[in-house]
Structures are given as structure tokens and as C-alpha cells.
Amino acid sequence: MTTLADQRIGRMEFLLNLRRRGITNAAVLRAMDEVPREHFVRAEDVDAAYSDQAMPIPCGQTISQPYVVAYMTERLAVEPTHRVLEIGTGSGYQAAVLSRIARAVTTVERYRTLADAAKIRFETLGYANITVVVGDGLEGVPEKAPFDRILVTAATETVPAALVDQLAQGGVMVLPLGAPDKVQSIVRLTRAPTELVREDFIPVRFVPLLPGRAQEL
């Protein structure tokens, strides 16, 4: 059984590891410190909640390793005035981190089971600036557009056109781009007046971004 002292030590090491690996943005580090990751993993994984690894969650999905969450959040360059769209709620951890920095977060999940569980976590933790939508992530949430920032937490081979349309001018989208069964790259797209400016970053592996809303879960 993990003691409170063990948890405190684990969280200190967690933050030190993020700094060692190059995460420097103070707002991102503060958000990672504020969000209790143990609330977003399965009960059997609570003791390892702050280890730097991805973990399984229901519906065949995963919660990304903390470094990747911090890295993608840092690349997104979120400001306190921003409205953020996240595609792929999962357990809600990434949305929770974003909510500690942004003005408002809308997160889309295709599995109702995951969406409902995430809503309960957000309510329990008092994260009132997150809206959870059950739907098709590839379609985004056009009625709430435009968004200053869009974060996609599942892999796609091509940039979803509907999400580009929902990105504000000068806005930024970060997503894992590449075939789902291969190594993908974290890509940042900035919407300029006449084009999307692309930057490629680290290799990653994410579950695929699937079309439609799940029928069973």
C-alpha cells in the first residue's frame, strides 16, 4: 500500500523528471502538478499513477505517459484567454491539464462510458471550465468554433479538414500524425492567412483516431 509520504515523493520525482526531459513552461509544470493523476487511472494502477508510462483504460484506450501530455501541452502554447478543443477525452487527464491553463476546454469522446466517467471526475475535482461532448472527433464541435487551440490525442494519417475549419486564424493544432500501426510524429500546425504552417517534433505511438460515435460503449 502506497503511503502519503510515498505519494509526495512520487509527485516530486514526477515533476523533476519532466524538467529533466526538457519541459520548461511554468504554466504547464504547474498544471501537471495540480492535476491528481491518480484520479484518472484504473484502481489497480493508482500506485503507479506518477510513473512515466502510458496505461490502459476502459474501451481499449490509453492514458498517455505524463511526459507526452506535458510535451504536447507545451507545444500547444495555451494562454489563459484561450478556448481549447480536445479530441479524445479518454479518462480526462489531458483535458484536466489543459483546463488549468486555458479559459475553457471542450473535449470530444466517442465512447459514452469514458465521457460519463470523465464528467464525474471533473465535477469531483471542481474543474468547471470543461465541457464533455459525446460524438465524432473527426467532426469536432462546429457550433462552438472557432477554437484558439486544438489538441488531438489519437493518431490520424491526414489532418482532419473539419478541425482545420474550426481553428481560428493564428490558431494552433497539435496532433500525432502518421499510420496508427506505425510510429507517428507530433505535429504542430499554425493557421496562417493563406496556409497551414507545419512543424514536426518527437516520434510517438497513439491509438488510432476512429470515425463516428461508438455504438456500444
Rank of each mutant, 00 (worst) to 15 (best):
T3L: 04
G10S: 09
L15H: 00
N17L: 09
N17Y: 01
R19H: 00
N25A: 07
M32H: 02
M32Q: 03
E44R: 12
A49T: 03
Y50W: 10
Y50L: 12
S51E: 13
A54Q: 07
M55W: 13
P58E: 10
G60F: 11
T62V: 04
I63Q: 10
I63P: 04
Q65C: 03
Y67A: 03
V68K: 07
V69W: 06
A70I: 00
Y71K: 05
T73P: 03
T73F: 03
R75K: 12
L76D: 02
E79I: 05
H82A: 06
R83S: 01
L85E: 04
G88Y: 09
G88I: 14
T89N: 09
G90Q: 08
G90E: 06
A95F: 00
A95D: 07
V97P: 05
L98R: 05
R100H: 06
I101G: 02
A102D: 03
A102H: 01
R103M: 12
A104R: 10
T106S: 02
T106K: 06
E109A: 12
Y111K: 13
R112V: 11
T113I: 07
L114G: 11
R121K: 12
E123N: 08
T124E: 14
G137F: 05
V141L: 12
V141K: 07
P142V: 14
A145F: 07
P146E: 03
D148F: 08
L151I: 14
V152I: 15
A154R: 08
A154D: 07
T156N: 11
T156Y: 13
T156R: 12
E157R: 15
T158K: 15
Q169W: 00
G170V: 00
L175K: 06
P176A: 13
L177D: 09
G178P: 06
A179P: 09
P180K: 15
K182T: 12
K182P: 10
V183P: 05
V183E: 14
S185R: 12
S185I: 07
I186L: 15
A192G: 03
R198I: 09
R198D: 05
E199R: 06
F201K: 05
I202F: 14
P203W: 15
F206T: 12
Q215K: 14
Q215S: 08
E216C: 14
